[in-house]
Design a protein around this nucleic acid. Structure first.
Lengths: 166, 166
DNA sequence: TCGAATTACTCTAATAATCAGAGTGATTTG
DNA sequence: CAAATCACTCTGATTATTAGAGTAATTCGA
């Protein structure tokens, strides 16, 4: 059967996961953010099969995370670029990279990629910060609260927060 | 066929995506971080089918993102909790929530969840910050560079960075 | 000018994953 | 004594993913 959609879930997390689609799509977004844009570049970079790449590009376009545009006629050729929405997702990709570096999932040689603040020349990191003060906040100091869009299921989930285990 | 693994990819991003597994697994991690822990709670919260939930819990345990532990004998009952590695992934989940809130994917009522710094009472956000100064950095000021673990493919990807399109 | 490469795909056939839902078995609750 | 709770496994139908072949136009090198 078709993978069930997360539509209508009253969850921002599920909504973005649905817009992206799956992990192949996340790798495609990674590659587009690094400057790749052609179908065959994406294929070489990810190793994904034709059918899946084609399907994912279509899905990402439908979700308005990428745009397909012609850069040549006769024969017609297309390239793919991130939209503004697509660039939003790059924050998630940065977080993934940072965690993978910490775990050394890519091997003991060290991180494959570094991300540098081009103004200071220093590395950047993804962090939780206090919205006003800009101070870095630790995860254990963060609490979830029901927002205005919380439905019954969200409130039920939050009701379990007290009994959290480690 | 079996979903292809991202193993051996020299990519921290792919490595974490592989450890998590898929979007159902991401919802499971979300729920565990909110305090849910029982199989039936996870099922009610996500709406995932038995077979898939059972499989994902197994995968997450193998990846050491969660731990399965008995909380009762006769009949034996188990609960699931995040490991330290599992808690790392919560940063990604926070980023997803923030982006989904911005897009209002969960509807016009507003965000279902808010995350609050319990010391200041103010909202927290996920941001790119300069590692030393702690200043928030914009994405357009961030550059990828080859790290020590970069292989040929990573360097090839980076060679495309100059020709990036918007 | 001829063959090879490039680019962006679609199509096929085999295999694997996902789906809704039924069933299990021990214990506790009404 | 019946019903509910809990943590699953199993089934049969359907859909997705995979490796790889094929297509069609154009440009490039010998």
């Amino acid at each position: 059967m078709r993978s069930k959609s997360f539509e209508g879930m009253a969850c921002s997390i599920a909504g973005v996961l649905d817009a992206v689609g799956d992990r192949w799509a996340m790798l495609i977004l990674r590659d587009l953010s690094l400057g790749l844009s052609k179908y065959e570049e994406l294929r070489k970079s990810t190793g994904v099969t034709h059918a899946t790449l084609s399907d994912r590009l279509g899905h990402l376009e439908e979700s308005e995370l990428i745009e397909r545009r012609q850069y040549q006629t006769g024969p017609d050729r297309y390239e793919y670029v991130l939209t503004r929405k697509g660039w939003d997702v790059v924050l998630v990709i940065q977080a993934l990279a940072q965690i993978g570096d910490k775990w050394a999932v890519a091997g003991d040689a060290g991180p494959p990629l570094k991300f540098i603040n081009k103004n200071s020349g220093r590395p950047v990191k993804v962090a939780l910060v206090d919205d006003k003060s800009g101070e870095v906040v630790r995860l254990r100091d963060v609490r979830p609260q029901a927002g205005p869009g919380a439905d019954h299921l969200v409130r039920w989930r939050l009701s379990k927060f007290g009994q959290r285990r480690c």
